[in-house]
Design a protein around this nucleic acid. Structure first.
Lengths: 240, 240
DNA sequence: CGAAACGTTGAAGTCTCTCAAGAAATGTGG
DNA sequence: CCACATTTCTTGAGAGACTTCAACGTTTCG
């Protein structure tokens, strides 16, 4: 980890689909009031992490909230029996760092080299206390996370892994950063083991399931990180 | 459904473990400022539902937020393939009614006869706009829900149903309304089919799994809704 | 170039689902 | 209060899906 001693870039919070249209800019990010933006800049820092570097560990003091500026992050929960359940992947603009009783509930790890905006929790709370607009944005953001979590729940509870994988791929294909609609090609930001830990299955099953989907013509492996998708057929698979 | 034309009882929001200790009363509920309480009373109504009555349906306009005053509620999401995934159970003081783009994401159904405090969403938003304390409480509440949802995720992703059931029972046993620590007896508020839909498995498997747990002495079925639990042994099961 | 990490494929065993039927509990009308 | 219908819960048996262990091909990186 490295703290960068440069001016903080504009804090961009992914907002598409969650905030009223008049608060969203052309790229789908929340428009923060310039005063709020400035106040945030005073308490936040820009930090960089290398690929696979841990950002924070489960059960350690939850000092900061993070917002990816570039790169991608994996947040997972380690269980007593050794399982490593991935709770979510985070892309630029999606805040993470949920805590309870002052400690992080999960661990976070950089999926790629990344730049993160790091905001001390205490200072953010203080700022929210006299900036109701910011607090409202936080509330809307928390509800967006809740919807994502419920969506994840629906994905992992498909009984057949075939559906879980199909649903997962469709979910990924909604992220403009990684899906090229023109070619219908998805660039996976995570490896097979991450997909397995996200879907609650094993690496081998992921591999076999992709094979099955390819056999049936629903996907095509261009290379291990690039998949061509037949979105309508995948969508249809979920109805049966 | 019946709208009760009586004075609104005090709005009680379950807060244990999520709000600072000085904001919680002796029963574990959030202490709302009396002004806020009064303002809420002006916009909220008390409504009653009978057991198994639907409270709202997925994809219908999300007009209200509900807070159970008594009784219990089941919130579920219906999928295109006919699956009915239960997203959460709600006990007194736990608000529910998540929407997106103005419609409910899930359906809600009364598990028992119940009294609910019903708050119009628009009025609540307006009230929050000039009552920062209430808005903060909403934020804390949303994060509490997020933690619950992530916890649910960890439960349903146990590969073996044995662990899912054990974890579910332990989760229930943390609710003081339904667990008697003195006798170590849990009163289930839902039937087998609800448990199955919550854990992503079938009724038969739930039944068989309870049988297996009983064989091994970790639980004892007093009747179909009352279970004696060996909490330490159940906890230990999750470590293997 | 070689080692390590990642991805794929094979085979055996286990768990869970589904379909089916019986037991227990609940509710209803007489 | 009892008889009967309905719902809920439990148990059985066969089929299918997934996990695990193992081996091998491919890519990445020092």
């Amino acid at each position: 980890m490295k703290i960068l001693a440069v001016a903080l870039p504009k804090v961009r919070i992914c907002a598409v689909g969650h905030w009223p249209a008049d608060r969203i800019d052309k790229d789908g990010f929340l428009i923060l009031d310039s005063v709020v933006q400035k106040e945030l800049a005073e308490i936040a820092s820009l930090v960089s992490y290398e690929c696979k570097e841990q950002i924070f560990a489960q059960a350690t003091p939850a000092q900061y909230i993070y917002i990816p500026h570039s790169g991608a992050v994996r947040v997972a929960h380690q269980l007593a029996d050794g399982r490593n359940q991935i709770v979510a992947f985070y892309m630029p603009g999606e805040p993470f760092g949920l805590g309870e009783n002052g400690v992080y509930l999960n661990s976070a790890c950089a999926l790629t080299d990344c730049l993160l905006i790091r905001v001390p929790r205490a200072a953010l709370d203080a700022l929210c206390a006299h900036e109701p607009r910011l607090q409202q944005d936080c509330l809307v953001g928390a509800m967006a996370q809740l919807r994502l979590s419920q969506r994840h729940l629906l994905i992992v509870t498909h009984q057949r892994v075939l559906k879980r994988v199909a649903d997962f791929l469709l979910e990924c294909s909604r992220q403009q950063e990684v899906f090229d609609p023109a070619r219908s090609v998805l660039s996976l930001i995570m490896d097979r083991s991450d997909i397995a830990d996200y879907l609650g299955t094993s690496v081998e099953t992921i591999s076999r399931t992709l094979g099955k989907l390819e056999e049936d013509g629903l996907v095509k492996r261009l290379d291990s990180r690039s998949l061509w998708l037949d979105v309508p057929k995948l969508t249809n698979l979920l109805n049966n």
